[in-house]
Nucleic acid binder design. Structure first.
Length: 747
RNA sequence: GGGCGGUUAGCUCAGUUGGUAGAGCAUCUCAUUGACGUUGAGAGGGUCAGAGGUUCAAGUCCUCUACCGCCCACCA
């Protein structure tokens, strides 16, 4: 039997098919210019003097493809953006990618080594950079396509890259100003050296894994008066002193005595010193001081003017005179020294203790503390801030970077959600030490420091120590520092480097500080703190008013998704299978800020059903309202419909309040229920009776109510499920309607 | 060693300012070829981790305990 429903578009006769509409709609939004606030104003969709909402996209690393975490981030930020746009704000959401220095270079190096067996020095700086850039470009293109697939309403006309020319200019300016203010300096001291990546890394890039270690108690030699204890016997060939507490009665008498010892084939000279840092109750109450390979010992050495004796090289191998140890890997050397101690009958005790192993975040290499000449950002050095609009920090006052970072959050200029992370942030600031920003890799912003050459016969690269900060060579006889900057140095500038800084652009004036920063809580220190540092210092203002942290996306059983476990759900696969709207809903419903969320294919499937439900709700509404058009001035509602409108208004008020509080997990669920349980299951059912046996006035009233309520559902749902709502919107019998993306949020 | 989060129906989680427990999925029963089976109606299922306290009243506030998870920390 043929089924005719002439008043509704034929597409509603079959189930909702996301594939057919998603790409088409995204392109239309883009072509119409609705992602760009200037275009919105030009087209009259936004008022020129409307309030501003701005946000930067945390730039994905150009190391590969998007994962579920990115999909979550894009969804939340797109909800914020679409909501504010519909509320009439001049809304800007800026896209971009991050060159991710070490992460990208080590990934490409890994591929080259696997395929060609070559290492970076076999290939050379220029060729490696060419290959990394090529990889980054391909990665970028795929990331951009995937981002569009999620429906992200980003203003692509303002797209940025942390390593492009404009950002390079910002990086130079930032470096120069900080150098001139004495906040960037070069110094020889202990760094975290990653032997695998062959570079320094910052304190934040260390990952501690819990394990056990051996704690050895021994004497350097039979006639040495004091026993010491250590977990790293191999470093003891670099010892220059034994430190004891100055008031320790056991050892006081030895202070300032000196000994020459042959230790495992190495001649060492030990002075006994008194230092307050030593805890008499721990171990033997005496510390073997190895200044070159321990930060604590380095500081003791500085206080007592002790020499520095490096014994481990950049490859984590011993570099000593001892034939027994020279050239051996650190782990081998440890065994050799222990064996030697046993043979010499010097080992007194061997205990197993819990111990943290520091590894490099990106390469997994075991980090060695080594002394190196590096560039640093001084966080505790006082300077005069010229201009500040930070609450509690006056222009012209003397502050430290740490003060600024603390003030931005403590003053409330930046609010962190959920607020428990404010404490985490404060605590981190308290422990913060100077930030090592130079990296011995090639992919990144090369440090704009030039050294004056003074070649000698031994060393044609000998420099005088004179330094110039310059974009280009200061002239003949200067060489540029070969190192590059920590990737977080450039991403720290992101909120304003994307808006044209260091130039005083309209964008910078209009959109900075940004309204919200939305990101994962795992980069609170790496990125959020560094952005606050850079913005407060360079612009005298906080970079964003609100920080909203989302959690980690986990698999259905709560474990982290990882390729090795094979439990990765690819967001794009899911979009293809169930539609982007379903993926977005599944990531949002029931996931509060800062909480990790579990996702599963079942959950995504459930929301595909929801998209289809909306589709069929529309089919019913359109077919039962026939040729009715929504009348904006209609007010002859029946008693029953007036009640329903009151309920609808209360509902709108409720969810609008929750949107303002970022409670998307609640709003999405509530609209879902309103649409399904209230509107479809109850209201549509009783409408059937009205249409069958009501008066004309009741029918007319109900038709208007159904149309207006469906419009309300589509509008409020649009930030969450932009595609299905926009697609339905095109068929709504409403005169002079705009695209849903720029329709007014109903209140 | 510090700090933080979690512990509510079989599973995943809500529960706003304290007023005798909610949703989705799952399970079971029933219905229905007129919007939708990607459906509808209904049912079962929880001493809200444990103990103590405040209160007329506590998942909800306070204290302690247990387990799970995370973050921070240069004790050699």
């Amino acid at each position: 039997m043929e089924h005719k429903e002439p008043n509704i578009p034929a597409k509603f006769l079959s189930p909702y098919n996301p594939e057919e509409v998603e790409q088409k709609l995204y392109e239309t939004w883009f072509k119409e210019g609705y992602f760009n606030p200037d275009e919105c104003i030009r087209k009259g969709a936004t008022k020129a003097d409307a309030p501003v909402f701005s946000m930067v996209l945390p730039p994905p690393n150009v190391t590969g493809t998007l994962h579920m975490g990115h999909a979550l981030m894009l969804t939340i930020e797109d909800i914020m953006t679409r909501y504010k746009r519909m509320c009439g704000f001049r809304t800007l959401w800026i896209p971009g990618t991050d060159h991710a220095a070490i992460a990208t270079q080590s990934k490409v190096e890994g591929i080259i080594y696997k395929e060609e067996g070559k290492r970076r020095h076999d290939i050379g700086r220029e060729e490696l950079l060419r290959r990394v850039n090529e990889f980054a470009q391909a990665s970028h293109d795929s990331i951009v396509n995937q981002t569009k697939r999620i429906g992200a309403s980003l203003d692509w006309s303002r797209e940025a890259y942390t390593l492009d020319e404009k950002r390079h200019e910002a990086v130079f300016e930032a470096f120069k100003r900080m150098y001139d203010d004495g906040l960037i300096y070069r110094k020889y001291r202990i760094v975290n050296w990653d032997p695998k990546g062959q570079t320094t890394i910052s304190d934040d890039e260390l990952i501690y894994t819990e394990g056990t270690g051996k704690f050895y108690t021994f004497k350097y030699s039979k006639d040495f008066p004091i026993s010491i204890a250590t977990t790293r016997p191999e470093t003891k060939v670099g010892d220059v002193a034994v430190a004891v507490h100055p008031n320790d009665e056991r050892y006081q008498k030895y202070i300032n005595t000196e000994y020459d010892i042959d230790f495992a084939g190495e001649k060492i000279h030990i002075k006994i010193v008194g230092d307050e840092a030593v805890d008499p109750a721990f171990g033997t109450g005496a510390v073997g001081v190895t200044p070159a390979h321990s930060t604590v010992d380095w500081e003791i050495a500085e206080r007592h003017n002790l020499p520095i004796v490096p014994v481990i090289n950049e490859y984590a191998k011993m570099s000593v005179k001892s034939e027994l140890l020279n050239g051996k890997k650190v782990s081998e050397a440890r065994e050799l020294v222990v064996t030697w101690l046993k043979e010499q009958n010097l080992l007194e005790k061997e205990e197993t203790i819990p111990q943290n192993l520091a590894t490099a975040e990106r390469t997994g290499g075991v980090v060695e503390p080594l002394p190196k000449l590096q560039w640093w950002v001084a966080v505790n050095k006082p300077f005069v801030i010229k201009e500040s609009t930070i609450t509690g920090v006056k222009s012209g006052s003397t502050v430290t970077l740490k003060d600024l970072m603390r003030a931005a959050v403590a003053s409330g200029d930046t609010e962190i959600l959920p607020d428990r992370f404010e404490k985490v942030y404060e605590h981190w600031i308290g422990n913060l030490r100077d930030w090592c920003i130079s990296r011995q890799i090639w992919f990144g912003h090369q440090i704009p420091a030039w050294y004056k050459l003074e070649p000698t016969t031994d060393n044609p690269q000998q420099t005088t120590g004179e330094i110039r900060i310059s974009k280009t060579s200061p002239g003949e006889g200067w060489i540029q520092d070969e190192d590059t900057l920590d990737t977080w140095f450039s991403s720290g500038l992101w909120t304003f480097s994307t808006l044209g800084w260091p130039h005083a652009t309209d964008d910078l004036r209009t959109y900075h500080p940004t309204s919200v920063l939305e990101t994962g809580y795992d980069i609170i220190f790496f990125w959020v703190a560094r952005m606050i540092l850079m913005s407060t210092y360079l612009l005298g203002t906080t970079p964003f008013e609100t920080v909203y942290f989302h959690g980690i996306v986990r698999s259905a059983d709560g474990s982290k998704m990882s390729k090795s476990k094979g439990n990765v759900i690819d967001p794009l696969d899911m979009c293809n299978k169930y539609g982007t709207d379903a993926v977005r809903m599944s990531l949002i419903v029931g996931t509060g800020p800062g909480n990790d969320i579990r996702t599963s294919e079942d959950k995504i499937r459930a929301y595909k059903n929801f998209a289809n439900k909306l589709w069929n709700i529309t089919r019913f509404v359109l077919s039962s309202t026939e040729n009715e058009t929504l009348e904006s001035t209609f007010d002859a509602y029946s008693t029953k419909d007036t009640e329903l409108i009151a309920r609808r208004d209360a509902f709108l008020k409720e969810i609008t309040g929750e949107m303002e509080e970022f409670k998307y997990y609640l709003v999405s669920e509530k609209i879902y229920h309103y649409a399904w349980t209230e509107f479809a299951d109850v209201i549509l059912e009783e409408s059937k009776t009205i249409f069958a046996s009501g008066t004309d006035a009741e029918k007319k009233s109900r038709k208007q109510f159904l149309l207006s309520t469906l419009a309300v559902i589509l509008k409020t749902l649009h930030p969450f499920t932009p595609f299905v709502t926009e697609e339905i919107w095109t068929s709504m019998p409403i005169e002079n309607k705009k695209m849903l993306i720029v329709e007014k949020w109903p209140v």
